[in-house]
Amino acid sequence: MSEYKRVDGRAYDEIRPVKAEVRVLKNADGSAIFELGNTKVIAAVYGPRELHSKHMASSYESLVRVRYHMVPFSTKDRKSQPFTRREIEISKVLKEALSASIRRELFPRSTIDIYIEVLNADGSTRVASLNAASLALADAGVFMYDLIAAVSVGKINGQLVVDLNEYEDQNSDSDIPIAFMPSLNKVVLLQMDGTMSLEEIRQALKMAKNAADKIYQVEKDCLKGSLESVLKVYGLL
């Protein structure tokens, strides 16, 4: 292993400060802000609601639609393209991961629309988006199997690190965004970009799981906290 020191001084297995908050948008049925250091993402859930396009409706399950989008001022250089191929691909894999966590069969003929806006990008935006969206779904009262906890892990100068920031993302040899439903022991999103041996991937996934467990805890505390603030006042908790 080489002498890579992380630019922000973190330990290799250390995630950036995490902040999560639900009920941030009044109009949405559920909403959340999720922050990993300077990566800030907001997600809104509308639905489950009537799907007006009848040919897309299913009698067996709800449709899930996801739009991952980076606002023009979220990146170092202004992002001028309205909707990039990268955003389309990410929207697709996020949709699939989130769908896995929703009990879609309970909402036939409807749609669940999830809008994600990356407000400030400092690496790991897709996993932050997934965490925000999962919290927003729980906040919307959508029946689901588990919360999703997602994190990135990568290799830079031969060193495995979790939760890559923008600099590490740009300079890494490889990176893996991964998402779990931790209580069910399921991986719902997995991508890898770069070069790694199987043994390195094994270690990387182990590191990712540990980091995801920490994020999972933050998510649970956030949701409990959103209720406690109301309930505590009356001596229930």
Binding site: V93, A100, I176, N185, K186, V187, V188, M192, S197
Partner: peptide, 22 residues
Amino acid sequence: SEGNLITGIQKSGVGGISLDEL
């Protein structure tokens, strides 16, 4: 790729999968 290195992974589809299966 050459040298038995893994140079990319993509999971697609809605279902989950365990780390052992991966």
